[in-house]
Computed example of a mutant assay.
Amino acid sequence: MSSYLVFARPGTAVPDEGSVVLNDSFAPLAFAFPVFWLLFNRLWLEALSAILILGVALLMVASASFYWPGVVLGLAVSLITGLEGRNWRASALLRRGWRFADLVEAGDAETAFDIHTARAGAAPEQSRRLRPALQAGRMEAGANGAIGLVPVERT
């Protein structure tokens, strides 16, 4: 079972059919194709950074004396994107006005959304009681919190 983060669109009631359900785990496609994955998920600044760093890594690989450091740098970009890409996407959704609605453990995204719908529709008080640990954690941290390795400043 995986953890899924549910985000609600700005100004809508929870649950909403337009909600985004993110799997909070390693992203293999982000590891294999970091730049394309970042561009597909509209993470423009992260994609630009990845392009620049991978360009430097390519220049390093072209030089015989810097071949292995260039390979390690390219793999590091892929690994960091695979590990933190979904957290970057969650952070981008929060910046765009989406609100964090729920944290669900389920086997797949559809089941996670169904569980979220049942929690939000059946017992809002119970749903609120399940979130205190998360509110103290990374998604609802204080003014200087973080999502994964990315610092997030909230107002």
Rank of each mutant, 00 (worst) to 15 (best):
M1V: 10
S3R: 15
S3H: 13
S3Y: 15
Y4H: 08
V6T: 04
F7V: 08
A8Y: 08
R9N: 05
T12L: 05
T12C: 10
P15H: 02
P15N: 06
E17N: 11
E17I: 15
S19I: 01
S19F: 03
V21N: 08
L22R: 05
L22W: 04
N23I: 02
N23D: 13
N23H: 12
D24W: 04
S25A: 15
S25T: 11
S25Q: 09
A27L: 05
P28K: 00
P28W: 13
L29M: 06
A30C: 04
A30P: 02
A30H: 08
A32D: 00
A32L: 12
A32S: 01
A32M: 06
P34M: 03
P34C: 04
V35A: 03
V35G: 02
F36C: 07
F36P: 00
W37Q: 03
W37A: 01
F40Q: 13
F40I: 11
N41T: 11
R42L: 11
W44L: 14
L48N: 00
L48A: 15
S49K: 06
S49W: 11
A50D: 10
I51W: 01
I51E: 02
L52C: 14
G55A: 15
V56R: 09
A57Q: 05
A57N: 05
L58E: 07
L58H: 05
L58G: 12
L59H: 04
M60F: 08
M60D: 03
V61C: 09
A62E: 12
A62G: 13
A62T: 01
S63V: 12
S63D: 13
S63Y: 00
S65R: 04
S65P: 01
Y67Q: 08
Y67D: 00
W68T: 10
W68D: 03
W68L: 10
W68S: 03
G70M: 04
V71H: 00
V72S: 02
L75T: 09
A76W: 06
S78W: 00
S78M: 09
S78V: 01
G82N: 00
G82E: 01
L83R: 11
E84T: 02
G85R: 06
R86W: 08
R86M: 13
R89D: 05
A90E: 02
S91V: 03
L93D: 09
D102M: 00
L103T: 06
L103S: 05
A106D: 13
A106Q: 12
A106I: 07
G107F: 14
F113K: 11
D114E: 15
I115V: 14
H116K: 01
T117P: 01
A118M: 11
R119Y: 06
G121T: 12
A122T: 15
A122K: 13
E125K: 07
E125L: 14
E125S: 11
S127A: 15
R128T: 02
R129A: 13
R129G: 07
L130W: 09
R131H: 10
P132R: 06
A133I: 15
A133H: 08
L134S: 07
L134K: 06
Q135C: 13
Q135K: 09
A136V: 09
G137D: 02
G137V: 10
R138Q: 15
R138S: 09
R138I: 04
E140Y: 07
A141L: 06
G142N: 03
A143C: 01
A143M: 05
G145D: 02
G145A: 10
I147G: 00
G148C: 11
L149W: 14
P151S: 09
V152P: 00
E153T: 15
R154P: 07
